[in-house]
Design a protein around this nucleic acid. Structure first.
Length: 562
RNA sequence: UGGGGCGUAGCCAAGUGGCUAAGGCACCGGGUUUUGAUCCCGGCAUCCGUAGGUUCGAAUCCUACCGCCCCAGCCA
């Protein structure tokens, strides 16, 4: 990670400007940030933005970034999510070193701070029910009403709170509240709940506690205990900052981290909230958190996205305070950019059509040399078998092609990538189905190294020697939703906008032999088609399954639409 | 009718009183090309939510208005 520079570099976003200013003023020579996920689901692309921001700043400014699990609600959190989150952050390329923390490790200290608040007269035990508290809270335009328990003496509050901890009261029967201002225009400041009684098994503290601290009380103190300098969160927490500061100010903590808010990531053609992602899973609309159509980190990984592509995407979209909608195309473009540079090329035929080269010797097989990457010779070459009968893509032949179609058709000549030029001499149809079954061609022996001088052949198509091709299967993924904003219409459930063609399984595909040894997850470009990788699930050992990460840009598809 | 934020091209996003308003994506032209890919070149806001005002000079300062987002969980 590099130092952010002053001249001619990318301009700093507003948070990095603050960090830079704090460093220059000597206030914080090295920033300490944190990524604070709640372990209640898998990480998604929106989290990646936050991860890249927090860890990115730490790297660029020689600070550090903590990974802290915000695990204060045992009813929703699980160890399995802790595991997956750690894996995903690491996979994205970030390292928290020794700095792995859990808010639950602070429970005892947090409890002591709560007692301090009580002793100072800044918190009280309230016996109102959740419903009563809600009623007395007021509305956005009307102030709230003081709880009848608001003026309990300190000694009684302390006694009650200790008994809450000791388990003497039922769940929900009492809470600890901050004594702030029921008339505050900021609803959050109307004596917010700090602790609730909850008998739930916690994934780390087990049954040691039956009271659990709330987010607003926990987060600021956790930041303080870890000496966080810049506490970065999303826009919807802007109001919470008042409470964040109130807790630290009232407790007179020696350290007071500052909270800054940035806009969360919204992407078109998808949903981002964990709640909705979970709904898709629970209703069987996708296969799980790592379904390649999901924009979870694990889904993207399985789909073939690389950490570099995701980081590049996060860098490209920037960080600001304006609620923004990034087009899905920007994400897709980010993988294309990365994979174009790094993925080796190979050939595969997804919908095969047999071509017989009539003037090629029946029993002959020769090897042709193909580059693994057109711009990176250091990635080497491979040898491909060529023979009389080959397989091409059905889409690369038309009986009656328009002039702009640069591929095969009666009488037309094309170049076989890395092979020969062939000219179509005829074709056969299946008498039953009427589908084209075989295309006949002749090849030009003089065209092996390239199209001979003076002749211009515009079209280049991919192919496979029929006798040498190996079977494979491919899953073509497309956007999960058909609507740009699946959540826009309040009347319709977002799941009704699911794209029925978001996943298409293609069987009976063929690939070049060397692909049999390609490791799972390693990206490869199928020339002229897109980027693919072997799926982690391989049920048929004789026909590996590939996931399509993203298509290549296709200006012909665009043209032919017109 | 409360509070907190935000408004620069189709989408992001620089700009923090003074040359013709960065850059990216998308889009449109053209060139190169054994991937209709990549790459390269060119085009793309007389204008910065609107209306006034301050100033020699404003997207940048002031005023008013308009629009959008968030907040009434014992979720985070």
């Amino acid at each position: 990670m590099n130092e952010p520079h002053t001249s001619e570099a990318k301009p700093l976003d507003f948070i990095r400007q603050i960090v830079a200013r704090d460093r220059e003023s000597g206030k914080h020579p090295a920033p300490i940030t944190r990524f604070p996920p709640e372990p209640n689901g898998f990480l998604h692309i929106g989290h990646a933005k936050s991860i890249c921001l927090n860890f990115g700043i730490a790297g660029e400014f020689q600070g550090r970034c903590h990974l802290r699990f915000d695990d204060t609600n045992p009813t929703k959190e699980e160890e399995a999510y802790v595991t997956s989150i750690k894996e995903d952050v690491r996979w994205l390329g970030f390292d928290w070193g020794e700095h792995l923390y859990f808010a639950s490790d602070y429970f005892e200290q947090l409890y002591q701070f709560a007692e301090q608040l009580i002793e100072q007269g800044n918190a009280y035990v309230c016996d109102l029910s959740a419903e009563q508290i809600r009623q007395l809270r007021g509305t956005l335009t009307e102030p709230g009403t003081n709880s009848p328990y608001r003026d309990r003496p300190v000694s009684e509050n302390l006694d009650l709170f200790r008994r809450m901890r000791a388990g003497e009261f039922d769940d929900g029967s009492r809470v600890l509240r901050a004594k702030i201002d029921m008339g505050s225009p900021v609803v959050l400041m109307r004596d917010p709940v700090l602790y609730r009684i909850l008998r739930a098994h916690h994934h780390r503290t087990g049954d040691r506690w039956c009271i659990y601290p709330m987010y607003d009380f926990t987060h600021c103190l956790s930041d303080m205990l870890e000496s966080i300098t810049h506490s970065l969160c999303t826009l919807e927490f802007q109001d919470n900052r008042a409470l964040y500061d109130w807790v630290l100010d009232t407790l007179h903590t020696p350290i007071h981290p500052r909270q800054y808010e940035f806009a969360r990531l919204n992407l078109s053609y998808t949903v981002m909230s964990k709640r909705k992602l979970r709904l898709l899973i629970e209703n069987g609309l996708v296969d799980g958190w790592d379904d390649p159509r999901m924009l979870t980190i694990s889904g993207l990984r399985r789909r073939g996205y690389t950490p570099r592509a995701i980081r590049g995407f996060c860098e490209e979209i920037g960080v600001g305070k304006k609620q923004s909608w990034i087009d899905m195309g920007v994400l897709e473009n980010a993988v294309r950019n990365d994979l174009n540079e790094h993925a080796p090329r190979a050939m595969a035929v997804l919908k095969p059509l047999t071509v017989i080269i009539d003037n090629y010797p029946d029993d002959q097989v020769e090897m042709v040399t193909a580059a693994n990457h057109p711009k990176r010779p250091e990635l080497g070459n491979r040898e491909l078998p060529f023979s009389r009968e080959i397989l091409i893509e059905q889409d690369d032949f038309m009986e009656d092609p328009p002039a702009k179609f640069f591929r095969l058709g009666p009488g037309r000549e094309v170049r076989l990538r890395y092979g020969y030029n062939i000219t179509c001499t005829g074709y056969e149809k299946d008498p039953e189905t009427g589908e084209i079954s075989v295309v006949h061609c002749t090849y030009d022996p003089a065209s092996k190294g390239g199209t001979p001088e003076g002749r211009k052949v515009k079209g280049v198509i991919h192919w496979l020697s029929a006798a040498h091709a190996r079977p494979c299967a491919v899953v073509l993924y497309d956007r999960l939703f058909m609507e740009e904003d699946p959540e826009s219409d309040k009347e319709t459930e977002f799941t009704e906008h699911l794209n029925p063609d978001s996943r298409r399984l293609l069987q009976g595909c063929y690939m070049e032999p060397a692909l049999a040894d390609l490791p799972i997850g390693k990206p490869v470009q199928f020339e002229r088609q897109g980027y693919f990788c072997k799926d982690q699930r391989q049920e048929d050992p004789l026909a590996p399954l590939f996931n399509r990460t993203v298509t290549l840009r296709d200006s012909w598809a665009k043209l032919s639409q017109k």
